[in-house]
Design a protein around this nucleic acid. Structure first.
Lengths: 158, 158
DNA sequence: TCAGAAAATGATATATTATAACATTTCATC
DNA sequence: GATGAAATGTTATAATATATCATTTTCTGA
């Protein structure tokens, strides 16, 4: 069985560092400004492998001493999602850091209802099935939302 | 190409009538009460093949002369979704009538961003791909959300 | 370097979606 | 008809998101 969710006790600093490096690269390529606020929001999202709501981000920024209003957070989120650095999880109204922002993909999200962690898959079987099904009914795809809730392997076996 | 979205000029009264008949049957089997309010909300949802928000339902009920508060609508929606008579479209925060409420299924939703119509598919390729992908990573599925946005065949070709 | 334009953020207000908590009414059953 | 359970009414508020205009920061070109 392949791993999807990170192992317990993994070096999370590496996740964050890698995400930041990739985000910088993407912004560079896209000639987009990775400002302090955007970087802060992005880093906060990467504090865990869970999805985070806009107001949790707002609270976190406020605790850090910033006085921030909702539009500031939503703007940063819009910037990050537009660039594909962050994905919105529709069924949670929450946001999740992407670990492959450099390539276009139709992602699928596994959401553990026990531990709250989210994992992104880029599974061709699923993508292909969606594309094929759309083709069969003459539907021209613009965006897909595939979110799967249940128990991750850790939670299911403990 | 198989049809998924209803044809223009189809006899929509038949859709509504069929949906009501099926809903009555499901409620009967489940020994659940299809009260006036639930029937009204259900019928309003079936007024079109679009997804409807809770507050649109509230407004519609109000126009009909009822003085209804949000909890009333949300309770009816909870009842209907629990029974599988209505599905929630997560990416729209809106609700959509199911036309096969009698059988368990992992549905997929095609949402036309042009005309606003929604169509439910029960496509085994997609379901199987999701189930298989979950199996490969040891994920125990509780619920799935598959929503596909784009242009329906009518809108794409006109 | 600095003037002007563009982009980003700040600030205020408000829209939209959803639920908690308790009161009252309706309904099935005895 | 009395009783308890289910449904609905009522009030208040929580949670999520955006519109609008003001101000600040950054980029660009003279």
């Amino acid at each position: 069985m392949s791993d999807l969710f990170p192992k317990k006790g993994h070096d999370h600093d590496r996740c964050v560092h890698s995400a930041l490096t990739q985000a910088e690269k993407v912004c560079d390529v896209e000639n987009a400004r990775f400002t302090d606020m955007r970087r802060k929001v992005f880093t906060l999202i990467w504090q865990s492998h869970k999805a985070v709501t806009a107001y949790e981000l707002l609270d976190a920024l406020t605790s850090e001493g910033q006085r921030v209003q909702p539009p500031t957070v939503y703007r940063a989120l819009e910037f990050l999602t537009d660039l594909g650095l962050v994905h919105r999880i529709e069924s949670l109204n929450a946001y999740f850091g992407c670990d492959r922002p450099d390539c276009e993909h139709l992602g699928q999200y596994f959401i553990c209802t026990q531990c709250g962690r989210v994992a992104e898959a880029v599974n061709e079987d699923m993508s292909n099935a969606v594309v094929k099904a759309a083709g069969q009914v003459g539907f021209d795809i613009q965006a897909t939302t595939v979110e799967i809730k249940g128990l991750c392997h850790d939670c299911a076996t403990h």
